[in-house]
Amino acid sequence: MLNYLIRRLMSTALVMLLVGLFVFLLLRMSPGDPAAIIAGDTATPEVIAGIRSKLGLNDPLVVQFMRWGWNIVNLELGNSIFSEQPVLTLLGQRLQPTISLSALTLILSISTGVIYGVLAARRPEGLVDKSLTLFSALGFSIPVFVAGYFLVYWFAIGLKWFPVQGYTPIEQDPVRWITQLILPTITLSLSYIALIARITKSSMLEVMSDDYIRTAVAKGVPERTILFTHALKNAGVPVLTVIGLGIAYLISGVVITETVYNIPGIGRLIVDAINNRDYPIIEGVLMLCSGAYVLINLLIDLSYSLIDPRIRY
Protein backbone atom coordinates (compact mmCIF):
# COMPACT_ATOMS: atom_id res chain seq x y z
CA MET A 1 0.00 0.00 0.00
CA LEU A 2 2.77 2.41 1.01
CA ASN A 3 4.79 1.56 -2.10
CA TYR A 4 1.73 2.11 -4.24
CA LEU A 5 1.12 5.48 -2.59
CA ILE A 6 4.71 6.60 -3.12
CA ARG A 7 4.61 5.52 -6.77
CA ARG A 8 1.35 7.40 -7.33
CA LEU A 9 2.65 10.54 -5.63
CA MET A 10 5.78 10.43 -7.78
CA SER A 11 3.72 10.06 -10.93
CA THR A 12 1.54 12.94 -9.69
CA ALA A 13 4.62 15.16 -9.50
CA LEU A 14 5.52 14.18 -13.07
CA VAL A 15 1.97 14.89 -14.24
CA MET A 16 2.07 18.32 -12.58
CA LEU A 17 5.37 19.12 -14.28
CA LEU A 18 3.93 18.20 -17.68
CA VAL A 19 0.75 20.16 -16.97
CA GLY A 20 2.84 23.18 -15.99
CA LEU A 21 4.92 23.00 -19.15
CA PHE A 22 1.87 22.49 -21.32
CA VAL A 23 -0.07 25.37 -19.73
CA PHE A 24 2.88 27.74 -19.97
CA LEU A 25 3.58 27.00 -23.63
CA LEU A 26 -0.07 26.94 -24.66
CA LEU A 27 -0.64 30.38 -23.16
CA ARG A 28 2.40 31.91 -24.81
CA MET A 29 1.53 30.37 -28.18
CA SER A 30 -2.11 31.45 -28.17
CA PRO A 31 -2.89 34.89 -29.62
CA GLY A 32 -3.43 37.76 -27.20
CA ASP A 33 -1.22 40.35 -25.59
CA PRO A 34 -1.88 41.38 -21.97
CA ALA A 35 -0.10 44.68 -22.55
CA ALA A 36 -2.50 45.60 -25.36
CA ILE A 37 -5.47 44.69 -23.16
CA ILE A 38 -4.13 46.73 -20.25
CA ALA A 39 -3.43 49.78 -22.41
CA GLY A 40 -6.98 49.83 -23.75
CA ASP A 41 -8.50 50.09 -27.19
CA THR A 42 -7.24 53.53 -28.18
CA ALA A 43 -3.70 53.28 -26.82
CA THR A 44 -0.83 53.88 -29.21
CA PRO A 45 1.56 51.03 -30.14
CA GLU A 46 4.39 52.85 -28.34
CA VAL A 47 2.49 52.83 -25.04
CA ILE A 48 1.71 49.12 -25.47
CA ALA A 49 5.36 48.37 -26.22
CA GLY A 50 6.39 50.24 -23.05
CA ILE A 51 4.00 48.20 -20.91
CA ARG A 52 5.16 44.92 -22.51
CA SER A 53 8.71 45.75 -21.66
CA LYS A 54 7.87 46.62 -18.03
CA LEU A 55 5.97 43.35 -17.61
CA GLY A 56 8.92 41.33 -18.88
CA LEU A 57 6.89 39.92 -21.77
CA ASN A 58 9.69 40.66 -24.23
CA ASP A 59 12.07 38.31 -22.42
CA PRO A 60 12.89 35.01 -24.18
CA LEU A 61 10.39 32.23 -23.51
CA VAL A 62 13.01 30.15 -21.70
CA VAL A 63 13.75 33.02 -19.30
CA GLN A 64 10.06 33.51 -18.62
CA PHE A 65 9.57 29.77 -18.03
CA MET A 66 12.55 29.54 -15.68
CA ARG A 67 11.29 32.54 -13.72
CA TRP A 68 7.83 31.01 -13.42
CA GLY A 69 9.19 27.54 -12.62
CA TRP A 70 11.43 28.93 -9.87
CA ASN A 71 8.41 30.69 -8.36
CA ILE A 72 6.41 27.43 -8.42
CA VAL A 73 9.23 25.57 -6.68
CA ASN A 74 9.14 28.26 -4.00
CA LEU A 75 5.34 27.92 -3.81
CA GLU A 76 4.95 31.40 -5.30
CA LEU A 77 2.53 31.88 -8.16
CA GLY A 78 3.51 35.48 -8.89
CA ASN A 79 1.26 38.52 -9.11
CA SER A 80 -1.70 39.31 -11.33
CA ILE A 81 -0.55 41.38 -14.29
CA PHE A 82 -3.56 43.64 -13.92
CA SER A 83 -4.35 44.12 -10.24
CA GLU A 84 -0.76 43.37 -9.16
CA GLN A 85 -2.12 41.30 -6.27
CA PRO A 86 -0.46 37.96 -5.41
CA VAL A 87 -2.14 35.08 -7.22
CA LEU A 88 -2.18 33.07 -4.00
CA THR A 89 -4.19 35.83 -2.30
CA LEU A 90 -6.65 35.91 -5.19
CA LEU A 91 -6.98 32.13 -5.11
CA GLY A 92 -7.51 32.26 -1.35
CA GLN A 93 -10.33 34.75 -1.79
CA ARG A 94 -12.01 32.54 -4.41
CA LEU A 95 -11.58 29.10 -2.83
CA GLN A 96 -14.38 29.24 -0.31
CA PRO A 97 -17.22 29.95 -2.78
CA THR A 98 -16.06 27.20 -5.15
CA ILE A 99 -15.48 24.66 -2.39
CA SER A 100 -18.90 25.47 -0.94
CA LEU A 101 -20.65 25.06 -4.26
CA SER A 102 -18.73 21.90 -5.19
CA ALA A 103 -19.20 20.28 -1.79
CA LEU A 104 -22.94 20.95 -1.70
CA THR A 105 -23.24 19.68 -5.26
CA LEU A 106 -21.39 16.47 -4.42
CA ILE A 107 -23.47 15.91 -1.29
CA LEU A 108 -26.75 16.47 -3.12
CA SER A 109 -25.71 14.55 -6.23
CA ILE A 110 -24.28 11.50 -4.48
CA SER A 111 -27.04 11.16 -1.90
CA THR A 112 -29.83 11.66 -4.42
CA GLY A 113 -28.18 9.87 -7.33
CA VAL A 114 -27.25 6.72 -5.43
CA ILE A 115 -30.67 6.34 -3.77
CA TYR A 116 -32.43 7.06 -7.06
CA GLY A 117 -30.27 4.48 -8.85
CA VAL A 118 -30.84 1.81 -6.21
CA LEU A 119 -34.58 2.36 -6.23
CA ALA A 120 -34.67 2.22 -10.03
CA ALA A 121 -32.77 -1.07 -9.99
CA ARG A 122 -35.22 -2.49 -7.46
CA ARG A 123 -37.98 -2.72 -10.10
CA PRO A 124 -36.58 -2.56 -13.62
CA GLU A 125 -39.11 -0.98 -16.00
CA GLY A 126 -41.08 0.20 -12.98
CA LEU A 127 -42.27 3.75 -12.38
CA VAL A 128 -39.06 4.87 -10.65
CA ASP A 129 -36.92 3.34 -13.38
CA LYS A 130 -38.93 5.04 -16.11
CA SER A 131 -38.79 8.35 -14.29
CA LEU A 132 -35.02 7.94 -14.05
CA THR A 133 -34.81 7.44 -17.82
CA LEU A 134 -36.74 10.66 -18.35
CA PHE A 135 -34.82 12.58 -15.66
CA SER A 136 -31.42 11.48 -16.94
CA ALA A 137 -32.35 12.43 -20.52
CA LEU A 138 -33.31 15.89 -19.29
CA GLY A 139 -30.37 16.16 -16.92
CA PHE A 140 -27.86 15.35 -19.64
CA SER A 141 -29.46 17.44 -22.36
CA ILE A 142 -30.39 20.69 -20.57
CA PRO A 143 -27.34 22.95 -20.52
CA VAL A 144 -26.33 24.34 -17.14
CA PHE A 145 -27.01 27.93 -18.16
CA VAL A 146 -30.53 27.13 -19.40
CA ALA A 147 -31.39 25.35 -16.17
CA GLY A 148 -29.81 28.24 -14.23
CA TYR A 149 -31.80 30.97 -15.95
CA PHE A 150 -34.98 28.95 -15.64
CA LEU A 151 -34.53 28.48 -11.89
CA VAL A 152 -33.66 32.17 -11.43
CA TYR A 153 -36.70 33.27 -13.39
CA TRP A 154 -39.03 30.95 -11.55
CA PHE A 155 -37.74 30.85 -7.97
CA ALA A 156 -35.84 34.13 -7.57
CA ILE A 157 -37.70 36.69 -9.67
CA GLY A 158 -41.14 35.04 -9.70
CA LEU A 159 -41.61 33.41 -6.32
CA LYS A 160 -38.83 35.44 -4.62
CA TRP A 161 -37.82 32.41 -2.54
CA PHE A 162 -34.11 32.82 -3.22
CA PRO A 163 -31.73 35.62 -4.18
CA VAL A 164 -30.80 35.97 -7.85
CA GLN A 165 -27.07 36.11 -7.46
CA GLY A 166 -24.09 36.65 -5.22
CA TYR A 167 -22.28 34.90 -2.43
CA THR A 168 -22.04 35.54 1.29
CA PRO A 169 -19.26 33.81 3.27
CA ILE A 170 -20.59 31.22 5.71
CA GLU A 171 -19.03 32.95 8.73
CA GLN A 172 -20.71 36.21 7.88
CA ASP A 173 -24.26 34.89 7.55
CA PRO A 174 -24.85 31.11 7.38
CA VAL A 175 -28.52 31.48 6.43
CA ARG A 176 -27.76 33.77 3.52
CA TRP A 177 -24.85 31.51 2.55
CA ILE A 178 -27.14 28.53 2.13
CA THR A 179 -30.00 30.44 0.49
CA GLN A 180 -27.65 31.90 -2.09
CA LEU A 181 -26.22 28.47 -2.87
CA ILE A 182 -29.44 26.43 -3.16
CA LEU A 183 -30.27 27.35 -6.77
CA PRO A 184 -26.68 27.05 -8.03
CA THR A 185 -26.34 23.68 -6.31
CA ILE A 186 -29.53 22.34 -7.89
CA THR A 187 -28.44 23.71 -11.28
CA LEU A 188 -25.05 22.06 -11.11
CA SER A 189 -26.38 18.82 -9.64
CA LEU A 190 -28.96 18.01 -12.31
CA SER A 191 -26.64 16.31 -14.76
CA TYR A 192 -24.44 14.90 -12.02
CA ILE A 193 -27.43 13.22 -10.32
CA ALA A 194 -28.46 11.77 -13.69
CA LEU A 195 -24.98 10.40 -14.25
CA ILE A 196 -24.59 8.84 -10.80
CA ALA A 197 -28.12 7.41 -10.79
CA ARG A 198 -27.64 5.77 -14.19
CA ILE A 199 -24.34 4.19 -13.22
CA THR A 200 -25.68 3.08 -9.85
CA LYS A 201 -28.68 1.49 -11.51
CA SER A 202 -26.68 -0.47 -14.08
CA SER A 203 -24.13 -1.63 -11.47
CA MET A 204 -26.92 -2.67 -9.16
CA LEU A 205 -28.69 -4.61 -11.90
CA GLU A 206 -25.51 -6.55 -12.54
CA VAL A 207 -25.01 -7.36 -8.87
CA MET A 208 -28.66 -8.19 -8.25
CA SER A 209 -28.42 -11.22 -10.53
CA ASP A 210 -25.53 -12.72 -8.53
CA ASP A 211 -25.98 -15.93 -6.54
CA TYR A 212 -25.38 -14.40 -3.12
CA ILE A 213 -28.25 -11.97 -3.64
CA ARG A 214 -30.53 -14.82 -4.63
CA THR A 215 -29.39 -16.68 -1.52
CA ALA A 216 -30.07 -13.64 0.67
CA VAL A 217 -33.58 -13.34 -0.80
CA ALA A 218 -34.18 -17.06 -0.22
CA LYS A 219 -33.02 -16.67 3.38
CA GLY A 220 -35.61 -13.92 3.86
CA VAL A 221 -33.20 -11.04 4.38
CA PRO A 222 -35.17 -7.77 4.27
CA GLU A 223 -35.14 -6.03 0.90
CA ARG A 224 -33.64 -2.81 2.32
CA THR A 225 -30.70 -4.75 3.74
CA ILE A 226 -30.16 -6.59 0.48
CA LEU A 227 -30.25 -3.41 -1.54
CA PHE A 228 -28.27 -1.01 0.62
CA THR A 229 -25.97 -3.34 2.53
CA HIS A 230 -25.14 -6.29 0.30
CA ALA A 231 -25.75 -5.15 -3.27
CA LEU A 232 -24.75 -1.49 -3.05
CA LYS A 233 -21.42 -2.29 -1.45
CA ASN A 234 -20.51 -4.55 -4.35
CA ALA A 235 -21.88 -2.15 -6.92
CA GLY A 236 -19.93 0.72 -5.36
CA VAL A 237 -16.65 0.53 -7.29
CA PRO A 238 -18.00 1.72 -10.68
CA VAL A 239 -20.01 4.41 -8.91
CA LEU A 240 -16.91 5.65 -7.11
CA THR A 241 -15.01 5.67 -10.41
CA VAL A 242 -17.70 7.78 -12.05
CA ILE A 243 -17.69 10.21 -9.13
CA GLY A 244 -13.92 10.60 -9.54
CA LEU A 245 -14.13 11.12 -13.29
CA GLY A 246 -17.03 13.46 -12.74
CA ILE A 247 -14.85 15.88 -10.79
CA ALA A 248 -13.54 17.22 -14.12
CA TYR A 249 -17.13 17.48 -15.30
CA LEU A 250 -17.94 19.32 -12.09
CA ILE A 251 -15.10 21.79 -12.57
CA SER A 252 -16.36 22.75 -16.04
CA GLY A 253 -19.90 23.06 -14.69
CA VAL A 254 -18.70 25.28 -11.86
CA VAL A 255 -17.31 27.79 -14.37
CA ILE A 256 -20.71 28.29 -16.00
CA THR A 257 -22.74 28.09 -12.80
CA GLU A 258 -20.57 30.69 -11.09
CA THR A 259 -21.06 33.01 -14.06
CA VAL A 260 -24.84 32.59 -14.15
CA TYR A 261 -25.22 33.11 -10.40
CA ASN A 262 -22.41 35.64 -10.06
CA ILE A 263 -20.53 33.56 -7.51
CA PRO A 264 -16.99 34.88 -7.10
CA GLY A 265 -15.23 31.53 -7.23
CA ILE A 266 -12.35 29.92 -9.05
CA GLY A 267 -14.46 29.42 -12.19
CA ARG A 268 -15.15 33.14 -12.56
CA LEU A 269 -11.53 33.90 -11.77
CA ILE A 270 -10.23 31.70 -14.59
CA VAL A 271 -12.74 32.98 -17.16
CA ASP A 272 -11.84 36.61 -16.42
CA ALA A 273 -8.14 35.79 -16.43
CA ILE A 274 -8.38 34.07 -19.81
CA ASN A 275 -10.23 37.03 -21.31
CA ASN A 276 -7.55 39.37 -19.97
CA ARG A 277 -4.60 37.06 -20.74
CA ASP A 278 -3.58 37.39 -17.11
CA TYR A 279 -0.97 34.63 -17.39
CA PRO A 280 -0.02 34.19 -13.72
CA ILE A 281 -3.65 33.70 -12.66
CA ILE A 282 -4.42 31.27 -15.50
CA GLU A 283 -1.32 29.25 -14.70
CA GLY A 284 -2.05 29.27 -10.98
CA VAL A 285 -5.67 28.20 -11.33
CA LEU A 286 -4.90 25.46 -13.84
CA MET A 287 -2.15 24.06 -11.65
CA LEU A 288 -4.51 24.10 -8.68
CA CYS A 289 -7.34 22.41 -10.58
CA SER A 290 -5.02 19.81 -12.11
CA GLY A 291 -3.49 19.06 -8.72
CA ALA A 292 -6.91 18.75 -7.11
CA TYR A 293 -8.15 16.47 -9.89
CA VAL A 294 -5.15 14.16 -9.66
CA LEU A 295 -5.27 13.98 -5.86
CA ILE A 296 -9.02 13.37 -5.70
CA ASN A 297 -8.67 10.49 -8.14
CA LEU A 298 -5.83 9.10 -6.06
CA LEU A 299 -8.04 9.21 -2.98
CA ILE A 300 -10.81 7.48 -4.87
CA ASP A 301 -8.45 4.75 -6.05
CA LEU A 302 -7.35 4.24 -2.45
CA SER A 303 -10.93 4.09 -1.25
CA TYR A 304 -11.69 1.10 -3.49
CA SER A 305 -10.01 -1.17 -1.00
CA LEU A 306 -12.26 0.16 1.74
CA ILE A 307 -15.46 -0.95 0.02
CA ASP A 308 -14.04 -4.03 -1.71
CA PRO A 309 -11.56 -6.02 0.43
CA ARG A 310 -10.55 -8.05 -2.64
CA ILE A 311 -8.74 -4.98 -3.98
CA ARG A 312 -5.23 -4.74 -2.59
CA TYR A 313 -2.40 -2.34 -3.39
Binding site: Y149, I157, K160, P163, V164, G166, T259, V260, N262
Partner: peptide, 18 residues
Protein backbone atom coordinates in the same frame (compact mmCIF):
# COMPACT_ATOMS: atom_id res chain seq x y z
CA UNK B 1 -19.15 48.66 -7.72
CA UNK B 2 -20.09 45.06 -8.26
CA UNK B 3 -18.97 43.01 -11.19
CA UNK B 4 -21.59 40.76 -12.73
CA UNK B 5 -20.11 39.12 -15.80
CA UNK B 6 -23.41 37.99 -17.26
CA UNK B 7 -25.70 40.83 -18.33
CA UNK B 8 -28.80 38.66 -18.01
CA UNK B 9 -27.94 37.91 -14.40
CA UNK B 10 -27.38 41.64 -13.88
CA UNK B 11 -30.81 42.35 -15.28
CA UNK B 12 -32.44 39.78 -13.00
CA UNK B 13 -30.59 41.28 -10.00
CA UNK B 14 -31.87 44.75 -10.89
CA UNK B 15 -35.42 43.49 -11.22
CA UNK B 16 -35.16 41.75 -7.86
CA UNK B 17 -33.83 44.95 -6.24
CA UNK B 18 -30.46 43.41 -5.36
Amino acid sequence: WQYIADSQTGMAALQAGE
